[in-house]
Design a protein around this nucleic acid. Structure first.
Lengths: 188, 188
DNA sequence: ATACAAAATCTAGCGATGCTAGATAAATAC
DNA sequence: GTATTTATCTAGCATCGCTAGATTTTGTAT
C-alpha cells in the first residue's frame, strides 16, 4: 500500500510545482508568458503531463487564483486582529485588501481578470472563496442590517479601487483618502 | 485635392469598419473570437491592411474601448438630466453606469479587463476618458470638498459592482440595495 | 531473475494564432 | 505611354493550446 501512497504524494508535489511555476512566471513576465510549453520545461516533464493534472490552461490559472483567495482570506483575518474598534477594523480590512492586490498583481489578476468560472458567495463556491468573503462579512455585519448586501458592496468598492489602481487609472497618491471615503460610507 | 480627400475618407471608413467588426464579433462570440483573420475577412481585405490602421490587435481592442468611453459619457450625461435632486442624480448615475456594463458586456470588458494602456484622469488621457470621468465629477463635486478623490472612489465602487456582476460573483438580485448603499455612502 | 500487464510518459503533429517580408497590382505623375 | 510611387496581397514564420499514438517505466506474478 505504501507504493500507492508514494505515487499520490509525488503527483501532488508535481501539481504544486505546476501551480508554483505558473505563478512565478506570471509574476515575472505576465500571464501571456505562462504557456504550457514553458511550464512543462520548468517542471521537467513533457507537455501532456500537465493535462493529466489540469483540464486546460485556464484551470491552471484558476488554481493560482484559488491559492490567492486563500492567502487573501488569511491576510484579511490577520489585519482585523490589530484593529482597535469597528471603524478601524474596516480600515484595516481595506488596507490589507489593497496591499494584497498591490503586492501580488499577477495573482490578483488571476483572481479577478482572467477567464475562469470561479464564483463566490454561492452554494457551489470553493471554500477559499467563501472564507475570503466571510472574513469581510464578519466585520461588516457588526454595523448593518443586511450584511450580505453590505459585504458585497464593500467588496465591490475595494475591488474597484484595487482594479483601477492596478491598471493605473486612478492616482497612486490619494489612496488613504479614498479608503477613508469608502469606510465612512460603510458607516453611514 | 479631391482625390486625397476621397482617399482619406475611404481610409477612415475602413478603419471604422474594422472597429465595428471587432465590436460585433466580441459581442457575439467573446473577445477570443476576435482574430485578425476573421476581421480581415469581415472587411474583405487581407490581414496586413489591418496593420496599416492599427499597430497590433490590442490597439483594435483599445479603439473599441475608446468608443465605449464616449458612449458611457453620453449615457451618464443623459441620466443626470432626469434627476430631481443631488441624491437622485447619484442614483441615476449609478443606474446608468451599471446598465451600460450590463447591456454592453464585451465593450465594458474592452474598457476595463483587456490589456490596453488606456489611462484616465491624467494629462495624456484621451478626451473620451476625461469626459466620462467629468460626467461623474460634475455631480460628485456638489457634495464634497475633495472632488477628485471622491469621484475616483465613486467610480471605483461602480466599477467594482459592474465587474463583480459581470463575472457572476455577486447576486444578480440585490442590485438596487447595493446602489443605495454606495449612494448613501457618498453622502456621508 | 524473467515475462507480462498496466500505468506513466514522451514524440510528433494538427489547426490556429499574431504578425511580417517580399512579390504584385493599382494609382499617380511625367 | 511609360515610370514611379502607393496600395494591397500571397505566403510563411514562430508560437500557441491541445491530443493521438508510440514508447518507456513500473509493478506483479511466476
Amino acid at each position: 500500500m505504501s507504493v500507492e501512497e508514494r505515487k499520490r504524494r509525488e503527483r501532488a508535489e508535481r501539481e504544486s510545482a505546476i501551480v508554483a511555476a505558473a505563478r512565478a512566471l506570471a509574476e515575472a513576465d505576465g500571464w501571456n508568458a505562462v504557456t504550457i510549453r514553458r511550464l512543462a520545461e520548468k517542471i521537467e516533464y513533457s507537455q501532456p503531463v500537465l493535462y493529466s493534472h489540469f483540464e486546460n490552461r485556464d484551470a491552471i490559472v484558476a488554481a493560482v487564483a484559488l491559492e490567492g483567495f486563500g492567502e487573501l482570506a488569511l491576510a484579511l483575518r490577520k489585519a482585523v486582529k490589530r484593529a482597535r474598534d469597528h471603524q478601524d477594523a474596516l480600515t484595516c480590512l481595506a488596507g490589507a485588501y489593497l496591499a494584497f492586490a498591490r503586492k501580488r498583481p499577477a495573482v490578483y489578476e488571476a483572481m479577478f481578470a482572467m477567464p475562469t468560472d470561479l464564483r463566490f458567495a454561492q452554494a457551489e463556491s470553493k471554500p477559499e472563496l467563501k472564507e475570503a468573503f466571510a472574513a469581510l462579512k464578519d466585520v461588516v455585519a457588526q454595523s448593518t442590517a443586511d450584511a450580505e448586501a453590505a459585504t458585497e458592496t464593500f467588496w465591490a468598492s475595494l475591488h474597484g479601487l484595487a482594479d483601477l489602481e492596478r491598471t493605473g487609472r486612478i492616482r497612486q497618491g490619494a489612496r488613504e483618502k479614498r479608503v477613508a471615503l469608502v469606510v465612512n460610507g460603510m458607516l453611514a
